[in-house]
Nucleic acid binder design. Structure first.
Lengths: 118, 118
DNA sequence: TCTCCTTTTTAGAATCATTCTAATTTTTGG
DNA sequence: CCAAAAATTAGAATGATTCTAAAAAGGAGA
């Protein structure tokens, strides 16, 4: 794991948000002013391939990156804001119905967030 | 609902696949040789806005469009193939845990498809 | 430490699905 | 039939992401 890769993983893991490439890039630049956007793409893609980071492709939005700790996502139907949601683990239920092992799942719940409800 | 809009909805609803814009465009052209790609984009986006069609944005793949009948998706981790999966409805469970109504949810299960298992 | 080979980074061009713009055509309501 | 609104068209523009080729950095062995 290279210096940049480690720092990018740390940025994603310690962030409270679901970061875009540009946000990761700007955060990293505070530490490493000489880093270039392509390097962020390279390393983030590597982290995603190695399953150390989750890529969140949400329709109508640019891609965001998330830590791998197990959780689901709430997406506001109005403003698009993404929040974390901890729902019970469905893995065994899904495997039972499917009749085979799964690699994982991605559950996104569309709702209207408290801010937009007002 | 315009002629093109109706035909595009029909193409998506009667297809056994999850179609890309280009596949929809090529299918429609068999009936309507003069139609243009932008018209397909316009009408598909309209159908998605009106919730008559589901947009499937899957990471690493171009967007696909699907009928609205309630079902979940299996995505092969190896070849990326998408299949339908009918899992029990989670809406009430999710609403109970969330403590509020939801607009819907999107459940995608990553697994290795039978073809890739061989 | 020096050399060789691999990996990573860099800069900038290229890609390509999608959106936008402005003009034209079609549809609709009175 | 006419005017206004909506839909379609052609083609340019957009913009996130990927690609390319060269430069830099890292690592293993002698």
């Amino acid at each position: 794991m290279t210096k940049y890769e480690a720092k990018i993983l740390d940025i994603i893991n310690t962030s409270q948000k679901h970061m875009t490439i540009d946000e990761i890039y700007n955060t990293l630049k505070q530490d490493e002013p000489k880093v270039v956007l392509a390097t962020v793409y390279n390393n983030v893609n590597k982290l995603v391939s190695n399953r150390q980071v989750i890529k969140l492709s949400i329709e109508g939005q640019i891609d965001r990156y998330d830590k791998v700790t197990k959780h689901d996502h709430l997406i506001c139907s109005v403003c698009g804001k993404i929040s974390d949601f901890y729902f019970s683990d469905l893995t065994s239920k899904l495997e039972k119905e499917l009749g085979g092992v799964i690699d994982g799942y991605d559950l996104r719940i569309r709702y209207v967030c408290p801010d937009c409800k007002k």
